[in-house]
Design a protein around this nucleic acid. Structure first.
Length: 357
DNA sequence: TCTGGGGTCCTAGGACCC
DNA sequence: TCTGGGGTCCTAGGACCC
């Protein structure tokens, strides 16, 4: 009894807001905005807004101050990572307990599930029921014959629905839509495609992959053409993910102007990054210092370093990088990323699509 | 309106080597 | 006068995702 192999993409509905409602049921149905420390007078942005808040035009990434102005009655809550992580782990455990499921986690609130079944819709409904029973959270499920089609399908299933997208209906559903609706095409790339006369998914699907190489390079060019067709990987891979690195960054409520302030901030930053690195147990092989000068100009300085766990060594290297900071310019943000040594057998990303793997 | 914090991967260009 | 060619490594920057 095998059936056909399907890719399901499971995505929790307004995940963070939903988790907040679970512990405060009286918030159900209210416009909820989660961001920063929950104080709209601070420099921070929206992490998630409930559907009720989204109706006012609030979305993630928007400055919290602006969001609060748009929705005067909003309940504004601080980000509580631990709570979301705990809820996420229960969701993922539920997915893994489904019969025949191979689970590839993409982020806190989404995962691919690979399964062989005769009836993917029925399986999807069972997944939704199981997640709801175990966590009281609703999710939407996209069904596809590739990862890309499953991922895109989910958007048509929201909220709490199921939608199937395969080679058979891909162009019918997606063909007339703008290329920006594709997973991995943003404002910049859709603009560059438009310069080549490619505006819709159907036009991208019809183009010769080699024609995109001069503009996007040898890997990204052919990848975008494949994306237009919805093609690509169809195997869900549950090999444990090995993080490439860890980073921390801080936006200062008031810009830093004194060298002593910068020095203190760098020491603090290094200590926080090292917490994660030590927990990971692999040596640091590279450092990237990110500096946002006021008002909004970002520079990065990267350096490979000899493998080390040594705190003093890493701090010294960080301070070396910081020597490249432009003196006398107010600093709004400092970030530090530590790249770690990779085991030889670590999983590679399946597609050039970035982030969340 | 004024832009978080955590990630991944690609590309261009220079350095360096044979 | 007209300045190889290929390969690898490194850094900076860009783009995108959740």
């Amino acid at each position: 009894m095998s059936g056909i192999r399907w890719v399901l993409h499971v995505d929790l509905d307004q995940f963070i807001a939903a988790v907040e409602v679970l512990r405060r049921p009286e918030l159900a149905g209210k416009p909820i905005i989660v961001g920063g420390r929950g104080d709209p007078t601070e420099r921070a942005v929206v992490s998630t807004a409930s559907y009720e808040a989204r109706a006012f035009g609030v979305g993630s990434g928007m400055p919290l101050r602006i969001a609060a102005r748009k929705v005067p009655d909003a309940v504004i809550l601080p980000v509580d990572r631990e709570a979301y992580l705990a809820a996420s782990e229960t969701v993922m455990a539920t997915l893994r307990s489904q019969p025949g499921a191979t689970v590839q986690v993409l982020g806190w609130d989404e995962a691919f599930v690979g399964v062989e079944t005769e009836n993917p819709e029925a399986y999807a409904r069972e997944v939704q029921a199981a997640v709801l029973e175990r966590t009281q959270l609703h999710c939407s499920v996209g069904i596809g014959d590739t990862l890309v089609r499953a991922k895109v399908a989910t958007g048509f299933g929201k909220p709490a629905g199921v939608f199937r997208l395969t080679a058979a209906n891909w162009l019918e559903v997606m063909g007339t839509r703008p290329t920006k609706d594709l997973w991995g095409v943003g404002t910049k790339v859709s603009g560059r495609l438009a310069k080549l006369g490619i505006n819709t998914v159907a036009e991208l699907a019809a183009c010769d992959p080699q024609d995109l190489v001069p503009e996007f390079g040898p890997r990204m060019g052919p990848w975008y053409a494949e994306l237009g067709r919805g093609d690509g990987a169809s195997v869900v891979d549950d090999t444990p993910w090995v993080p490439r690195g860890h980073s921390r960054e801080t936006t200062f409520q008031r810009d830093l102007t004194e060298p002593a302030q910068v020095d203190d901030a760098l020491r603090e930053l290094t200590a926080r990054v090292l917490e994660d690195v030590v927990a990971e147990g692999r040596p640091v092989v590279g450092l990237t210092l990110k500096i946002r000068y006021a008002p909004f100009f970002t520079k990065t300085h990267a350096r490979k370093i000899p493998e080390t766990f040594d705190r003093h060594e890493i701090l010294a290297r960080t301070l070396d990088l910081a020597a490249e900071i432009e003196a006398g310019r107010p600093i709004r943000l400092l970030g530090l990323r530590a790249e770690m040594a990779m085991p030889a057998d670590a999983r590679k990303g399946h597609t050039p699509t970035r982030g969340g793997w």
